[in-house]
Design a protein around this nucleic acid. Structure first.
Length: 912
RNA sequence: GGGCGAUUAGCUCAGUGGUAGAGCGCUUCCUUCACACGGAAGAGGUCGCAGGUUCGAUACCUGCAUCGCCCACCA
């Protein structure tokens, strides 16, 4: 137990990851699964490689998201509220509207509500943690954190106070994105822009006095027409703007119009940002409900008036006029249009595509509103954050994402951090209600403090009120890499594990999270929060669409685990995780890897079976590996290669390469060749012990190589097998902390020698397969080798050849002639003749050879063309030319052999 | 309006400046004592289109097409 905890006494170098904390309300989805699996692969690999490893788990309180979820649930459980809702429905009021007006939380009050959310969290909040555990995530669960923990809250307050004291946090009254449903401000990032088919409405504004100089290109000088997508906001217009150089409107500037449906007169002004080509070239200016108009208004001197006509609930305010007050903004739009029509001020409506902002949590269209909010001036922090990535103190992998990061960071705007919700870190600011002193008034009575102040430090008033708002969830997430390690206290964890080694996350939160962690880490720790950022793909459905509940295309990771097992599922995710591309999830792939689990299991079973029946069981494990035969030397060499490739791939975050390497090795080298060959060796008393040992050793190493990907099955098998000791290595009682295989030396001689055997076997099998020779037919084979060495090796390994190719008799030599009536296969180091005891179908064999010849011929003509090309001979590198020449010659030789075979066969056929 | 990515076997995806690979699916053969969730042998691709660089391009460059993302205050 306790294997997931870092060993405090370890002197080894630290390797640490903080998990991207999922929402407490969350349930494991594909994105989480991929994210967690990749981290776990790294963590298990590094832990086995001897590092002092820490993976910090935790969850995020996810302010708005959680509040919405819990609020909805609480509301539906409350009978009183349900009745009210039904009544509302009967009165044909949309639920959404109703909720926006009468949010449940306001009914029960702040304290009661917060209490209920905590209760809810205690009951259901552990769900995703359990699911992560089920996935096999080897986090140090004793260090699990929650973004609203006491410790993390302390960190949040510390950061807020310090940034405030440095003037980087300030309060301002300006236009912000407001969600009328969630009833809170949102940062720019939390607004999703979505294009929709809408209408562009042309409204005539009547001039107070006519323009004297006339007839400007068909423009009716009695009116000025504006085009808008939001007619209802006209009630808050405080100007009409045209481009200063627009000749059509030159004489209009400075005049006033009667704002329809109101009694106000508003000026016609000029502004450079107006596009004369769009609409009529005249635009209505609504500073209180449009970001663009706000800048226009503030640019003027004196600034234009701000008139708010839409309230926080998305309904028209009293200012909009009694006819409209209280109406929902979209309902009001209809009424305004009708009213305009009636007064003949509605010129026309055009279809028009435009994008509109929506709340990223509830999809309600956002309303720009003037409110007083807290902001972080992030520009100075961003500068540093850009620098560390430019200077490669942080590597973003794949590199392509760096551009995205820079682009955003360089255009970063101040971050609105206050939220008008209740679930979150309350802003540590208090307001003096009395402001009795000059100093207090100068500070607007604002007190920012780490602890709750008893009295005003400026005027000693005891009438203090805490700010009602809470902080953006991402504010606390930004501190995650150090707040989870104990900051602001100077803890050992912080010393040992900060900066963390790598952050593994999806690209969708590069701005929300990654960028902000970098800024905060640099600011408060004076160092980057992580060395590497590995950005993985998004998991999509098989058609490449984003998985979403509304589309109904969600694949549930838990279902996958139930159906195919956690190991197969994990392996699939890793195998899919190629850099720079999204994952289109395919269930068939998972099924394929389940077969792999089965294959491994059976291979292990076979090996164990043979060890258990062995008289000298103990001895097998106690001595080290000694490769006494070719196949053993070969598999150890292949193991060395696989080990190298896997370690290298993981080092470079090429998870898919690592996965396919281990798959290939276990299945197609270890199982297909070595185990098959071992079947005869273990019957040979001279080899029995060494081969069993080598089988066990290779299995052991395969399990360890595979363990980070498939922790369950590898552990289970590992527990069942005896372990071959390697130079004084300590045998652990779990594979989790056994040593990850390190590079061993390769045996090129063995690999070359083995290739003769493989060639011979494949050659015989090809003939058998292509001629459809039944396995009952035992073959007589002659092999003409092209070298003494090949001859020697083949002779020495006769028994393998016979067994793997199911041949009765094999003759090998350099001087062998093709027996009459035999089939031929030509390899680079030998020719293989299979004699079929007179059953050879000559026609079939001839056509088979013709096909082989044609293939070779195609290659030859290609190569021929190349080698005749003087430019190629002159300009291509020497090695390449030599290689091509050698290839060419070999192909010629093979072609000749095949033609000869065909000739002979024809002779035989002709005689008959 | 900017930026990014994708386009390779029927499907899902790797990949490389020197005549293309995997898994699944498909065809044929095989229940031989680890495994039919298996074994063996096959079929299947002018690597989106058009130019260019190069002795040589699927790979590098440019343009185009299709699809998909991200960013953006054109009402």
């Amino acid at each position: 137990m306790g294997y997931f905890k870092p060993d405090p006494s370890s002197k080894n170098s630290a390797y640490s990851i903080v998990i991207p904390p999922p929402n407490v309300t969350g349930s494991l989805h594909m994105g989480h699964a991929l994210n967690a699996v990749l981290q776990d692969v790294l963590i298990r690999w590094k832990r086995m490689s001897g590092h002092k490893v820490l993976w910090v788990p935790g969850t995020d309180h996810a302010g708005i998201a959680t509040q919405n979820v819990v609020e909805k649930q609480l509301a539906s459980e409350d009978p009183m509220f349900r009745t009210a809702m039904n009544e509302a429905k009967n009165k044909n009021i949309k639920e959404k509207q109703f909720l926006s007006q009468e949010l449940y939380r306001y009914k029960i009050g702040r304290e009661a509500f917060i209490e209920k959310v905590w209760k809810w969290k205690a009951e259901y909040g552990g769900k995703i943690i359990h699911q992560l555990k089920r996935l096999g995530a080897s986090c140090d669960w004793s260090r699990e954190r929650f973004t609203l923990d006491e410790g993390l809250s302390k960190a949040v307050k510390e950061v807020f106070v310090r940034l405030y004291e440095e003037g980087l946090i300030y309060r301002d009254n300006r236009l912000i994105n407001w969600c009328p449903r969630c009833h809170t401000a949102l940062s720019d990032l939390e607004v999703e822009h979505e294009e929709l088919e809408g209408k562009l409405t042309y409204i005539k504004y009547q001039l107070t006095s006519p323009v004297s100089s006339l007839s400007k290109g068909g423009i009716d000088e009695g009116y000025i027409t504006v085009a808008t997508t939001r007619p209802e906001t006209m009630l808050g217009d405080t100007a009409v703007a045209v481009h200063p150089d627009d000749s059509r409107y030159k004489d209009f500037i400075g005049k006033t119009v009667d704002l329809p449906l109101t009694k106000r007169k508003i000026p016609i002004i000029s502004d450079n940002t107006v596009d004369p080509l769009f609409g009529t070239g005249a635009v209505k200016v609504t500073p209180a409900h449009d970001f663009n108009d706000e800048t226009i208004a503030k640019r003027k001197s004196p600034p234009l008036e701000f008139i708010t006509v839409i309230g926080k609930d998305g309904r028209m305010t009293e200012t909009a006029g009694s006819r409209y007050a209280g109406k929902d903004r979209f309902e009001c739009r209809k009424i305004v249009l009708e009213d305009l029509k009636e007064q003949d001020l509605l010129e026309k409506e055009e279809k028009y595509k435009y994008s509109i902002g929506h709340c990223y949590r509830c999809k309600t269209s956002i309303e720009p509103l003037i409110t007083l909010q807290w902001y972080v001036n992030v520009k100075p922090l961003a500068r540093e954050a850009i620098r560390v990535v430019r200077e490669r103190q942080i590597r973003i992998i794949p590199k392509g994402w760096e551009n995205t990061y820079f682009a955003w960071m360089e255009n970063i705007r101040d971050w609105c951090i206050s939220r008008q919700i209740w679930w979150g870190h309350r802003i540590p600011a208090w307001y003096c209600q009395e402001m009795k002193s000059e100093e207090c008034r100068r500070k607007s009575g604002v007190i920012v403090s780490r602890v709750t102040p008893q009295k005003c430090p400026y005027c000693s008033s005891e009438k203090l009120v805490q700010d009602e708002d809470v902080l953006d969830t991402w504010f606390s997430s930004a501190l995650w890499p150090f707040s989870t390690l104990g900051w602001p206290d100077e803890t050992d964890d912080l010393k040992t594990f900060y900066p963390t080694t790598v952050l593994v996350t999806g690209f969708d939160i590069i701005f929300f999270w990654v960028a902000r962690m970098i800024m905060m880490g640099l600011k408060f720790m004076g160092d980057v929060p992580f060395r590497d950022v590995y950005i993985h793909a998004l998991v999509r459905d098989i058609k490449g669409q984003k998985m979403s509940k509304s589309k109904g295309n969600v694949v549930d990771p838990l279902t996958m685990m139930d159906r195919y097992g956690t190991d197969a599922f994990r392996f699939t995710l890793a195998a899919f995780a190629a850099q720079g591309r999204d994952v289109k999830f395919s269930e068939e792939r998972v099924e394929g890897y389940r077969h792999f689990v089965n294959k491994l299991w059976n291979a292990a079973r076979f090996i164990m079976m043979n060890i258990e029946t062995n008289k000298n069981q103990k001895e097998i494990a106690e001595r080290g590996v000694e490769a006494l035969n070719l196949s053993s030397r070969w598999i150890l060499s292949r193991l060395a290669t696989a080990t190298d490739n896997i370690n290298k791939a993981l080092e470079e975050y090429r998870f898919n390469d690592a996965a396919s390497e281990i798959y290939q090795f276990i299945w197609h080298e270890f199982c297909d060749w070595y185990i098959e060959m071992a079947k005869s060796d273990i019957k040979n008393p001279n080899l029995e012990m060494s081969v069993l040992r080598c089988l066990l050793y290779t299995l052991d190493n395969s399990l360890r190589l595979l363990h980070p990907f498939m922790p369950y099955v590898t552990e289970e098998i590992w527990q069942k097998i005896p372990h071959v000791r390697r130079d004084g290595e300590e045998i652990q009682d779990t594979i989790m902390i056994s040593e990850y295989p390190k590079s061993l030396s390769r045996d090129h001689q063995a690999e070359e020698n083995m290739s003769y055997i493989i060639d011979a076997v494949l050659g015989i099998r090809t003939i058998r397969g292509e001629l459809n020779v039944p396995p009952s037919a035992e073959l007589n084979v002659s092999i003409k080798s092209y070298s003494r060495k090949a001859e020697e090796i083949l002779k020495e390994n006769m028994k393998y050849l016979k067994k793997l190719s199911n041949s009765a008799d094999i003759t090998i030599g350099m001087e062998i002639d093709k027996p009459e009536g035999s089939a031929t296969c030509v390899k680079s180091s030998m020719e293989i003749y299979v004699f079929l005891k007179g059953v050879l179908n000559i026609e079939a064999e001839v056509s088979r050879l013709r096909k082989a010849e044609k293939e070779i011929e195609d290659s030859i003509s290609l190569l021929n063309k190349k080698l005749l090309d003087e430019d190629f001979i002159m300009r291509a590198p020497k090695e390449v030319v030599e290689k091509e020449k050698a290839k060419y010659e070999e192909l010629l030789r093979r072609k000749e052999r095949i033609l000869e075979s065909i000739k002979k066969l024809k002779e035989v056929g002709g005689e008959k």
